[in-house]
Simulated scan of single mutants.
Amino acid sequence: MDRADYEDIAGQLRGLLIRLDDRLSSKDAALIAEFIDVGEPGLALEWMADQLSEYDQPLASDERVDMLALVERMQMKDRASRALASCPET
Rank of each mutant, 00 (worst) to 15 (best):
R3M: 11
A4S: 08
D5Q: 12
Y6D: 15
Y6A: 15
I9Y: 04
I9R: 14
I9F: 01
A10E: 05
A10M: 09
A10T: 04
A10Q: 12
Q12K: 15
Q12N: 12
R14V: 01
R14I: 02
R14E: 04
L20Q: 04
L20M: 08
L20Y: 06
D21Y: 01
D22E: 14
R23G: 13
R23C: 05
L24C: 03
L24R: 00
S26A: 09
K27Q: 13
D28P: 01
D28F: 00
I32Y: 02
E34S: 13
F35K: 06
F35S: 05
F35P: 01
I36N: 04
I36P: 04
D37A: 15
V38W: 06
G39W: 00
G39N: 11
G39Y: 09
E40I: 00
P41A: 14
L43F: 03
L43D: 12
A44H: 03
W47R: 15
W47M: 14
A49L: 11
D50Q: 15
D50N: 08
D50L: 15
D50W: 12
Q51Y: 03
L52S: 10
S53L: 10
E54L: 13
Y55S: 13
Y55L: 04
Y55D: 14
Q57Y: 00
L59S: 11
L59F: 07
L59M: 11
D62V: 11
E63C: 06
E63L: 00
R64I: 01
V65S: 15
V65D: 12
V65C: 05
D66V: 03
D66G: 10
D66Y: 00
M67L: 14
M67N: 04
L68I: 09
A69I: 01
L70Q: 04
L70W: 01
L70S: 12
L70F: 02
V71R: 11
V71S: 11
E72T: 13
R73E: 14
R73I: 03
R73S: 13
Q75E: 15
M76Q: 11
M76H: 05
K77Q: 08
K77I: 05
D78N: 10
R79Y: 13
A83W: 06
A85I: 01
A85G: 12
S86A: 11
E89T: 04
